[in-house]
Nucleic acid binder design. Structure first.
Lengths: 338, 338
DNA sequence: TTGAAAGCGCTAACAC
DNA sequence: GTGTTAGCGCTTTCAA
């Protein structure tokens, strides 16, 4: 079914059908009713490809996300979706399976499909050192399609809504130190990821400020999943005879793995080791003990991402960088040493 | 940038540029090189809307999922995505926030966008009694766009790839009964959801077969999230002086909530209460004790869904219903009473 | 091998 | 108020 057939059956021109559908022109009551009847009869809906082609607007916001399973990302995603829907747009999600090539491919595809804007959550823009090819791609696409990212693209013509990582690590460290912890380990993450890099820099700064010796073997590399947390923790145990009294996990997804490692060794949280994580997804409330964790206002974060994208669609001017402030939520996984 | 500009700059006709891009016609070496050079110069990519419009094929598979956060769904999603990508298509995901109206709206939108096929995971097709309006919608859309569902649409012209729920509950019940459990509770889910209904029917059948009295107050309604599991478990405690020795949770997302409720009362799993769940997402390995759980081969499930969709795109004939067989994975959350 | 032309389905400017 | 027409960007006959 298409607009011409509807027009023919209603005895009007395609233009009139279009006018009835879009509601932004006057049509005589009589013809309108006739057209509406035929539309209902066939449940006619206009072809979005044709509409998009002529209007150069598709009413879609693309959301590219590095990992669909990680609850941090799915929380972000859900909140972006809600806001996109609330604003009358259609959210189009693509997961990039933590694969850079796929990210680039899908980003291009979203451009090809003429999405009105794209939000990129995680992925290549998370890297500390921007890949110049990626920056070029972003710049090329951003000429006609606004791009909002949660990371950073050096020299990239796109907008950032990003977490204040330094503030997050700050709050968790100060909390631990205030409770008497001096041997604090940072488990998980990779140095080439900007958020992790920022955390580690600040971690050292805080230790120095409190006159605590920095121990390199308390900082453990590993990836951001459950397995990463487990292996990171195992690594920590292997590398240290003097264990830390507190561990800061890079996110609560990996904290799950860290907990398993700790508990398998018969150690208790928080009695033997305190544990703090980042993200405060549903996981922190689901495990025992509940995890003290850095929390973001996901609703607000999602809203900011989407609203930024939509303002850009409407050619409004915006700051290049917006920060989302984290907040430590104290639960049960930290013990006082005082 | 568009095909005419490229053509002009290369000194050829748009048709020739198209031939170069699609590679399915002969172009003289000389012109081809000239065109390719201009294409590279501008990183030209054809407008997917225009392509879709003329080819009546968009190379996209839509995936509609009821809940992005629930790890059962995100696992499904990830595996569908992988297979869609492997087959050279672009996965387009929409979450429907467990909202029926949204599901209908997005399904229509996917049709409007002329996706080559749509996979619907969860949502309205999960309901025991099919909404006739929904069936009509499915039938209308399915005339030109194959639809694959994980549930069931009575009288719907779509294809099912569905879990063998009866077999799942069968395995978990037989396992519990073999270990001496007689007081077994079923926590979570709603009767109007087909998968839950099927489980409960079979649950009664198995009890009868083993000569165990069915107790209605051991079957608890609640929704499918963490909160649902918690409240369901609380409800169970409230309703029963004689507690069950084992609980079967409707999924492992809700089992998280059930565990919390059990542990808050100072009861231990499995010493005081055994716990079994459905789905075997990452959660079952993340908690302590690890949950004995019904597992699906998500990779195979995802593949089957996608391959079914793609075969339909290619007009192959297929069985209306395909079953995915579950398998009980024994971990640490069930105690033997023998 | 190549270009001209038609047409996918729609909207919007224009003329009446 | 309404129909005609042009055109969005592409692919694919059809001729040459």
């Amino acid at each position: 079914m298409n607009i011409s057939k509807i027009a023919k059956e209603a005895g009007v021109s395609p233009a009139t059908v279009s006018r009835v559908m879009t509601k932004n022109a006057n049509v005589s009551e009589e013809k309108r009713l006739r057209v509406e009847k035929v539309i209902r009869k066939y449940d006619y809906r206009p072809n979005a490809l044709a509409q998009g082609l002529i209007k150069t607007k598709t009413n879609t916001i693309g959301v590219l996300v590095a990992d669909l399973v990680n609850p941090y990302y799915s929380s972000m995603l859900e909140n972006c979706e809600k806001e996109i829907i609330r604003c009358g747009y259609v959210p189009i999600i693509c997961g990039t399976l933590n694969d850079c090539e796929l990210e680039v491919k899908f980003l291009q595809k979203m451009f090809d499909m003429r999405m009105d804007a794209v939000i990129i959550i995680g992925g290549k823009s998370d890297e500390l050192v921007t890949d110049p090819d990626y920056a070029n791609l972003i710049n090329r696409l951003a000429e006609s399609m606004p791009i909002v990212i949660t990371g950073k693209v050096e020299g990239g013509d796109c907008y950032q809504v990003t977490l204040d990582e330094a503030e997050g690590i700050n709050q968790s460290m100060e909390h631990l130190i205030a409770l008497g912890h001096r041997r604090i380990s940072l488990v998980g993450g990779m140095e080439y990821i900007k958020s992790t890099y920022d955390k580690r820099i600040r971690y050292r700064g805080i230790l120095r400020k409190h006159g605590i010796t920095y121990r390199e073997r308390y900082v453990i590399n590993s990836d951001y999943g459950i397995e990463g947390g487990y292996e990171g923790m195992e690594d920590l145990f292997k590398k240290n005879k003097t264990l830390p009294t507190a561990v800061v996990a890079i996110n609560d997804y990996s904290a799950l793995g860290a907990m398993r490692s700790i508990q398998e060794r018969g150690l208790r949280i928080p009695e033997d080791i305190s544990l703090v994580s980042f993200d405060s997804t549903y996981i922190v409330e689901a495990v025992l003990p509940r995890l003290t964790s850095i929390s973001y206002d996901y609703e607000c974060f999602g809203k900011k991402l989407v609203d930024t994208a939509l303002k850009l669609v409407n050619k409004e001017t915006l700051p290049d960088v917006q920060k989302v402030t984290p907040k430590l939520i104290v639960r049960e996984s930290v013990r006082s040493l005082l």
